[in-house]
């Protein structure tokens, strides 16, 4: 459904030093430099897949999404979405896709969402009866009702996001590009949007590419993730595999029958935390079975749990360190 081959995007940006001299020089001798926002990115996404797109701010996620939906032209490389070249923005292509950007809106600010929805229905050639049916169906899935008759400016952020999603999906697109769809929403609203997206994907078989700063969005919706760092794709695969590649350790949590001291755990891995009888260790994946056997043999263990470290912590540390896998 989505084929991307060696996709690149280079922007030309003007540099200006601060102060009067900088302003003078900027006016008469403007210096520009090329910034490569996306470099040689390649991947394919099959029909019906939900894929998470991860990366720090400025990593190139949104630029890639904009190229995939045809909003901006690539500097190099090839893109095919649903069999079309996105940058041509043919009507048949535009009817198959949608782009939702958190905190950006297409709804008319001073009017109820229903007014904007009637324009969208007409633009996409959906008859009045069919439009009413689709609005009711999506409104039910999104748990939104009388808000559709209130001016957009009077809606809460969560209600507005739901109305934006309804507007973006009215034409039943088969490819969804979602850029931070839960940005700024409270925890309950985030959960409702997530559950809606999962439901929509299940019902329609739509292909979804989702960027989010909230790992909960990615872990709840996407089994596959793309990780982009400084414009380069550095991981394409299962979320679990990303955790394994980011961290060679697994987290072992113990609850002991009696108190222990840090010295007791020398030689068992890295002691992350010790709170009386609760212990948290980081153990090398290759030594995990041996270490767990030794822990069970040498301590009076009430409970034992082995986990991957939380993915958001791993990715966060990756971005902070500027590490590339």
């Amino acid at each position: 459904m989505i084929e991307v081959e060696q996709l690149s995007k280079t922007y030309q940006v003007a540099d200006k030093t601060p102060g009067f001299v900088g302003t003078f020089n900027h006016f008469f001798r403007r210096k520009t430099r090329d910034v490569q926002a996306v470099r040689d990115v390649s991947f394919t996404i099959e029909r019906g897949e939900m894929v998470g797109f991860l990366g720090a701010n400025g990593a190139g996620k949104t630029t890639t999404l904009k190229m995939l939906c045809g909003l901006i032209h690539p500097s190099a490389g090839k893109v095919h979405v649903a069999g079309y070249l996105p940058q041509r923005r043919q009507a048949a292509f535009l009817k198959q896709i949608t782009l939702v950007m958190g905190q950006k809106q297409q709804l008319i600010w001073d009017l109820p969402p229903l007014d904007s929805l009637s324009v969208n229905a007409a633009v996409y050639g959906i008859g009045e009866k069919e439009a009413r049916y689709r609005i009711n169906e999506l409104a039910e899935m999104l748990e939104i009702g009388e808000e559709l008759t209130r001016p957009v400016r009077k809606l809460s952020l969560g209600q507005r996001m739901k109305a934006e999603l309804l507007a973006a999906l009215l034409h039943r697109p088969s490819v969804l590009f979602l850029d931070e769809p839960t940005l700024g929403l409270d925890v309950n609203a985030q959960a409702r949007v997530r559950s809606f997206l999962a439901d929509y994907n299940r019902r329609t078989g739509a292909t979804v590419l989702l960027t989010s700063h909230y790992m909960a969005d990615i872990t709840a919706l996407c089994s596959r993730v793309l990780l982009i760092h400084q414009g380069e794709l550095i991981h394409d695969g299962a979320l679990d595999a990303l955790a394994a590649s980011l961290s060679p350790f697994r987290q072992v949590r113990l609850e002991l029958n009696s108190s222990a001291s840090p010295e007791d755990f020398v030689g068992y891995g890295e002691l992350e935390a010790l709170d009386d009888r609760a212990v948290r260790l980081l153990v090398s994946r290759s030594e995990l079975t041996v270490v767990v056997a030794r822990l069970l043999a040498n301590f009076d263990v009430l409970d034992l749990e082995v986990n991957d470290p939380p993915i958001d912590e791993l990715i966060g540390s990756l971005f902070r360190k500027g590490r590339v896998v």
């Binding site: 939906c69 909003l71 950007m101 809106q105 297409q106 969208n120």
Partner: peptide, 12 residues
């Protein structure tokens, strides 16, 4: 303000 983008992605 970025309001042009959704307009550019509609078949109108």
């Amino acid at each position: 303000l970025g309001r042009l983008s959704p307009f550019l992605l509609q078949p109108l």
